[in-house]
Nucleic acid binder design. Structure first.
Lengths: 269, 269
DNA sequence: TGTATTATGATTGCATATGATCGAAATTGA
DNA sequence: TCAATTTCGATCATATGCAATCATAATACA
């Protein structure tokens, strides 16, 4: 991630929300706090935004107050570098012209950055993903019908005829809460509904799961392992988990986490 | 690979993506980093692109603006005060809890600001309206299925089952290109398709049309006057247009344009 | 064909950007 | 007011991108 790209992301984030915190921007850009502070200081000098304690705000603050100051940056933070590497590996599977389905979630959201360089047909139930791709890429963006759920940031319809059955893709990408011998686990019933609608609409089901997801259990069983075509994870996956996937005939892709991004690992180990 | 060919590739890459890195371009062209740097420096001198650390970016957008800022800003200038007043009058028709349909367009987009104070169920095929309401209000936001058309900024599906038939509202709000004895006229075929899908899904059809729309003709006839329940316009409407609406049994609401906002009128008169 | 000119790619050294750490300052809550 | 937490600024080691140089390959021209 380069300076100009970070600046763009920061400015667009500042435009979209009343206030952005430094950690938020670290999440969005993958940069360290020091770098974000330097960027904010620089953009403040250029009068592109106003620097405030804790983060930055738009130079012309909107007269109304948004209710969701941070869309969904809360949940992640700990495996950010891994998630980015996984998302990159997922996008690398796609060639220009492909039709793909991207399910909503924090892991899959990381796909938007590498996706900006592609020209795909992207069907997604994630409003933030659609928004980002619409603004920052030339991909074709398609949506299902439904209500927008603010907390999960997904579009979900109570009816079957939500348009998703008309879209058939080569691959569907999704995240999960946990993955084990029983299969794919999810925590949020709404996410399960959303995933169920799409899960049959693609040739290959590709699951993005950082290594911490193995062994994680959750309450809702989404589908058995056999249903999964490919799992993309990071290089901290242990042998037992890999063997489990191999036994279920699931292809495993291990994404290399760039050394530069891995600094956070010291504090985790 | 010759220099001119590389330049062509580099320029097209810069146009399509927000930022391209030197390694990216090496991969695209097969040239070495040194050559790419030389090319970028050269194109930078020719003002064909902007050189930034790590790569290059398009010369056009110094800071990124949302996709909806550009197409809307163009049309918004003229009659902006009138459109705002009309939109305010339209929103004043709604009580908390109502279900409404808002069709995409520059006039109806003005409804988002007064809508921030409401708590409605809003079904809209306009991506910018959905985005704004989602971020800056507590209204429930519902979308139809379909592809997002960047130019018109609407969501439109080629299939009938796009979810709109499941939503039935008290009022549907829409703009238009022109309005005359024949009925409601629209210019863009895509907008017509989008409007047709929704037009039967509400008790009352409310048309937002500033006074300049009367007498404007266009190529596509959307519906006859009799179909319209209410027209909201500004106080520059002439008597003949008002009589025409009355003859068709259309309710007419004339929005007061605040004197302070009317400054644009001087140059128009 | 031989030579001159230009374009390209690799190497090296330099400049800059980045991230972690630590101490200072500000904010919050009691 | 004091203590605890958070945020900030400065410093330094490292990583990364960049410019300059030189050798080689491609091209133009006589």
């Amino acid at each position: 991630m380069h300076e100009s790209e970070r600046h763009r992301i920061i400015l667009s984030a500042v435009q979209e929300r009343p206030v952005v915190t430094v950690p938020d921007l670290c999440q969005l850009t993958g940069a360290s706090e020091a770098t974000i502070r330097r960027d904010i200081a620089q953009l403040h000098m250029q009068k592109k935004l106003r620097r405030v304690r804790g983060g930055a705000e738009a130079i012309a603050p909107p007269s109304f107050v948004g209710i969701n100051a941070r869309p969904f940056a809360l949940q992640e933070g700990i495996h950010a570098a891994e998630k980015r590497a996984i998302a990159k590996a997922a996008v690398d599977l796609c060639d220009d012209g492909d039709a793909i389905i991207v399910n909503g979630g924090t892991t899959t959201f990381q796909m938007v950055h590498p996706l900006t360089a592609k020209r795909l047909q992207v069907f997604t139930n994630s409003f933030p993903i659609a928004e980002h791709l619409l603004k920052h890429s030339r991909n074709t963006v398609l949506l299902p019908a439904g209500a927008i759920y603010r907390e999960q940031n997904i579009i979900l319809s109570p009816f079957d005829a939500d348009g998703s059955s008309h879209f058939y893709a080569r691959r569907m990408f999704m995240g999960c809460r946990g993955i084990g011998p029983l299969g794919l686990m999810e925590g949020d019933p709404l996410l399960v509904q959303a995933e169920q609608k799409l899960i049959g609409q693609a040739d290959e089901l590709v699951v993005l799961a950082d290594s911490s997801k193995f062994g994680q259990r959750s309450s809702l069983l989404l589908c058995p392992l056999a249903r999964i075509h490919t799992v993309i994870t990071d290089d901290r996956i242990d042998d037992r988990a890999a063997a489990m996937l191999e036994a279920a005939d699931v292809q495993l892709i291990v994404a290399e986490v760039p050394a530069a991004d891995r600094k956070t690992r010291a504090q985790e180990d």
